[in-house]
Structures are given as structure tokens and as C-alpha cells.
């Protein structure tokens, strides 16, 4: 079972490397955001897998918190990119 967990961890790490490559290459800021979003959700899975791999169950809580933070970070960055202001209260009307 340990080797299966290790294999899955390596697969997730590969995905994270690919997502990071996309985030660095761009070309637009939204490609970067797509890459960072994939990187973030894979981090959650990675932490959960490491929790089982190392037998340190408390790490699952870290994964849970990371899932929450990652979502907020993506939304906050998108808002910043779109409105140049995190405190803006209204959506610009595009419809």
C-alpha cells in the first residue's frame, strides 16, 4: 500500500509541475490563474496523501484549511485583476 501511495504522490507532483509550467509561461494572466488554481487543488490532495503516507493524521486538517484558502485566493486574485481594487463592491456590468 505504501508504494501505491508513493506512486499517487509522484503523479500529483508531476501534475503540479505541469500546472506550474503553465502558470510561468502564461501567456495571459488568466492562463497563470488557471495554472495556479490547478496547482492549489492538487496541493490539497498532496497534503491528504502525505497524511496517509506518513501516518500523521493531523495533516488532513491542514488539507481542509488549504482547500478553503485556495478558493478564496483565486477569487481574490481574479477580482484584483478585473477591478484593480480588492475593496470594490460592485461588479462591472458586462452583460
Amino acid at each position: 500500500m505504501t508504494s501505491v501511495l508513493l506512486g499517487t504522490i509522484l503523479a500529483i507532483l508531476t501534475t503540479m509541475a505541469l500546472a506550474l509550467w503553465r502558470a510561468i509561461r502564461g501567456p495571459s494572466v488568466f492562463d497563470t490563474i488557471v495554472g495556479v488554481n490547478v496547482f492549489g487543488t492538487k496541493t490539497v490532495l498532496l497534503i491528504a496523501l502525505i497524511a496517509y503516507f506518513s501516518g500523521n493524521n493531523d495533516l488532513v486538517d491542514v488539507a481542509l484549511v488549504y482547500a478553503l484558502i485556495n478558493f478564496l485566493a483565486v477569487i481574490a486574485v481574479l477580482k484584483l485583476v478585473r477591478q484593480r481594487d480588492l475593496a470594490a463592491s460592485r461588479e462591472p456590468s458586462d452583460d
Binding site: T8, A11, T14, L18, A19, G35
Partner: peptide
């Protein structure tokens, strides 16, 4: 393992 494989395929797609 299937989940890991799908993750890598998705990463390749990105």
C-alpha cells in the same frame, strides 16, 4: 492510481 493517472492527463492538457 487511476486518480493519479487522470491528474497527470489533466496536467498534460493544461
Amino acid at each position: 492510481l487511476t486518480g493519479g493517472a487522470f491528474a497527470v492527463i489533466g496536467g498534460v492538457g493544461v
